[in-house]
Design a protein around this nucleic acid. Structure first.
Length: 760
DNA sequence: AGAACCTGACTTTTT
DNA sequence: GTCAGGTTCT
């Protein structure tokens, strides 16, 4: 077994894996086999006689935790290892020592939108005009305070600006509102645990006994509270292993403190430091570009990244006249690579801001290239899911009035804003839970008129309550039926384009799956777990589609071919990071670029434009200052003119620098290859009765995916039966077809949405 | 109570 | 240009 654990490790990797006692810092460059080191080390510890349940590994995402568990179990050890995200560990410990931290079991975890709701409530209660300060700002300051473990009282003592005194008041009320609802926010999960660990040495000692080896992954992203938790958990034995890469610290704006990793050696004297510098992922040229870029940062630990891989082709730097050209060219290039045998799933397009994705999507759709967007906030943020979960939350925790407000009139049952406001005001006055006010509505004169409707709602909830003790999936079904949500969404689905019922069915099966896998399932645990599930966890790199994502979302992934679009000043680095020009923020932007570059295994293309549509207006752009920092000798720079309105995509010759006179005038170099892809650009096919290309505003051709939906084609519609296509037109994603049905007449549909199939 | 209308914001968002 | 959230109108 030892053989297997140490097999194919390089020297530093082996050193890290076989380090057992005492603090260890693993500085792991991108693609240096960090996960391998972590999992092998866990196996090594177990093999040296340490019990798996004495080992605690902490990650940032559920996905990372799951991946780690999978790979450790593959090595045949560690079935009982503690593998958690920081927040899940927090939730777990809070449940354990709840009384010490003033939370009752079954507490609700509020997400950002719940939190915002409560802050608004606090502002209302404190008579704070939202024009003075925005709820988001308040949230930000409270979050910072919690990161520093400051209770409202302690925070108040530290502030001297009037603004912050206001925040202190709001923080106090906010916290009170949370407590009344037996709810915590994400920051509480860390702060409360850290405070208990700080103030209850006996408890901390016990946990040190339990977790004799502590491992923290992505240490560069820890904030202060997380740092303290890690520190306390390893206070007695000092068997702490931190892994990470300061050059990939990209969450400073969320409170991550890069100094935690930079100062590890001061924090833990005698720490062993291992540098993983050999890269197994990228070509030599990609790595050269990455290294040259990141060298421009001051605040870092130097690493010499190297690889035994081939140099590979040059790194492409493409310059376009306009955003649309960029999107077109990337899409055609992807089509070409696919024809040459590259899987779509091996390709990613990254950008700094989500706003860039739209144009790319359109271009991909136009060519029928399958793609997926790894955008934040998908499944659990859908309205129908949030509604259903809100019922479950009320059942699990009747004090949860954020959830109560969400469902009390959803579906509509004639309980309006006035009534809801009165319920909330009464609850505040009487110091009661909102649900209890609703229960006793008849007692309160202001609620007299609504009392009947409120009683009906109470009755509804009470009739659901018994199902809480039954199987979870059945509970969800009961809620869907009795609440009327199912009926409501059935109707909406019928005349809308959404498929909300399908999502709800997915929720039911998620509940069933949870119940299946969990030894000790419970409704509160299910809900907590959902609250701690992010969309990052849902990114599936193997879905057979090109992945579009922000540079942030790309961290930790790798692809054969990577495009980084919109590498322009103001976008990357983003203008908001330039404003206060605090150097540090520009360095974080540079790290973001570094993260993007190092996702690429074989091919990397960086692109930028002279103009692009931003916020509805065409905006002049200049290339990113970072482009000057790249080594020209491994770049292949190309300049392209307009793809569409100037009659076809063609490369334009001529001089090319990065467009800014301040740049040093290194001669532009061209490396390698003919640009054969241009010649192969395919003129889109236009539908016959829709002669396009005459106006400046061409009518978009039907996307490739509908290429053979020609007039005359016979199709079947779920409701209208068999019909004949009259015409197809429209832009990608909005392709419309007019179809004549016997006895029904002509109807126009959006093809992506309508339940239509081709027949014959 | 619900629809229509208006306004402002618009980086990133591991939990 | 687009979306969400809030406000005003009916």
């Amino acid at each position: 077994m030892s053989e297997r654990i140490l097999a194919d490790l390089n020297e530093p990797q082996r050193e890290a894996v076989t380090h057992v006692d005492g603090p260890l810092l693993v500085l792991a460059g991108p693609g240096s086999g960090k996960t391998r080191v972590i999992t092998r080390r866990c196996a090594y510890l177990v093999q040296s006689g340490i019990r798996a349940d004495n080992i605690l590994a902490i990650t940032f995402t559920n996905k990372a935790a799951g991946e780690m568990r999978r790979r450790i179990e593959e090595l045949g050890v560690g079935r009982n290892m503690w593998i958690y995200t920081f927040h899940a560990l927090g939730a777990r410990l809070l449940r354990e020592f709840g009384p010490l931290a003033k939370v009752a079991p079954g507490f609700t975890i509020f997400d950002d939108s719940d939190q915002k709701r409560v802050i608004k409530d606090a502002m209302l209660l404190c008579d704070v005009d939202p024009n003075t300060i925005k709820p988001e700002q308040v949230a930000g300051k409270i979050s910072k305070a919690k990161d520093q473990l400051l209770t409202p009282e302690e925070y108040e003592a530290t502030v001297d600006f009037a603004d912050d005194q206001l925040v202190a008041r709001l923080y106090l009320v906010y916290q009170r509102l949370l407590e009344q609802q037996n709810a915590v926010d994400f920051d509480d999960l860390l702060m409360r645990v850290a405070i208990v660990l700080r103030d209850h040495p006996a408890y901390t000692a016990r946990l040190n006994e339990r977790f004799r080896y502590v491992l923290i992954d992505e240490y560069q992203d820890t904030n202060h509270a997380q740092y303290l938790i890690a520190r306390c958990l390893s206070q007695h034995h000092r068997n702490v292993c931190a892994t990470g890469d300061p050059d990939q610290s990209i969450y400073g704006w969320r409170g991550a403190n890069i100094s935690n990793i930079l100062d590890f050696e001061q924090d833990y004297p005698n720490a062993r430091v291992v540098r993983l510098e050999q890269n197994y992922r990228s070509t030599g040229n990609v790595l050269k570009v990455a290294s040259a870029l990141i060298r421009h940062n001051q605040n870092r630990k130097h690493k010499d990244l190297w690889t035994e891989n081939d140099d590979g082709g040059p790194v492409d730097v493409w310059k376009f006249a306009e955003g649309r050209d960029e999107a077109e060219r990337i899409a055609t290039r992807i089509a070409q690579l696919h024809r040459e045998g590259l899987e779509y799933a091996q390709i990613a397009i990254c950008y700094r801001v989500n706003a860039i994705s739209r144009g790319l999507e359109e271009a991909l759709r136009m060519r029928g290239i399958p793609y997926r967007i790894a955008r934040g906030l998908e499944f659990y943020n859908r309205k129908e899911i949030k509604d259903t979960l809100a019922y479950l939350h009320v059942l699990a925790n009747p004090a949860d009035s954020v959830a109560l407000r969400r469902i009390i009139n959803t579906p509509g049952r004639g309980i309006g804003k006035t009534t809801i406001d009165r319920v909330m005001a009464t609850a505040e006055q009487e110091g009661m839970a909102a649900m209890d006010v609703v229960r006793q509505a008849a007692r309160f004169p202001v609620l007299r008129r609504a009392a009947g409707k409120l009683a009906a709602f109470v009755d509804l909830i009470d009739r659901m309550q018994p199902a809480v003790d039954g199987p979870l999936s059945e509970l969800v079904e009961t809620v869907l039926e009795r609440s009327g949500l199912e009926a409501m969404y059935k109707e909406e689905d019928f005349d809308g384009e959404e498929d909300r019922l399908a999502n709800l069915a997915e929720l039911v099966s998620a509940a069933a799956r949870y119940e299946d896998e969990e030894p000790d399932p419970s409704l509160p645990d299910f809900l907590q777990r959902i609250s701690l599930t992010s969309d990052q966890d849902a990114i599936d790199e193997t879905a057979g589609a090109v992945l579009l994502m922000t540079l942030h979302a790309a961290k930790g992934l790798e692809f054969n071919t990577v495009f980084i679009a919109g590498v322009e000043q103001g976008l990357l680095p983003h203008e908001r990071s330039l404003r206060l020009a605090t150097g540090g923020e520009v360095e974080e932007e540079r790290r973001l670029f570094f993260v993007g570059i190092t996702r690429a295994m074989q091919r990397l293309t960086i692109s930028h434009c002279d103009e692009r549509f931003l916020r509805g207006v065409m905006t002049a752009r200049i290339p990113s200052e970072f482009l000057r920092e790249l080594p020209t000798e491994v770049l292949n720079t190309e300049v392209f003119g307009h793809a569409i309105s100037r009659g076809g995509l063609r490369p334009r010759g001529g001089d090319f620098d990065f467009g800014d006179d301040d740049f040093d005038q290194r001669p532009p170099r061209r490396v390698g290859r003919e640009r054969s892809s241009w010649q192969r650009y395919e003129e889109p096919t236009f539908s016959p009765d829709d002669p396009a290309g005459q106006s400046d505003e061409p009518v978009a051709p039907p996307p490739q995916e509908y290429a053979d939906w020609r007039p005359g084609t016979i199709v079947q519609h779920e409701a209208f039966g068999v019909g004949r296509i009259l015409w197809v037109r429209g832009s990608a994603g909005n392709t419309r077809a007019s179809i004549r049905f016997a006895g029904v007449g002509e109807k126009t549909f959006i093809l992506d949405m309508a339940p239509i199939t081709r027949i014959g």
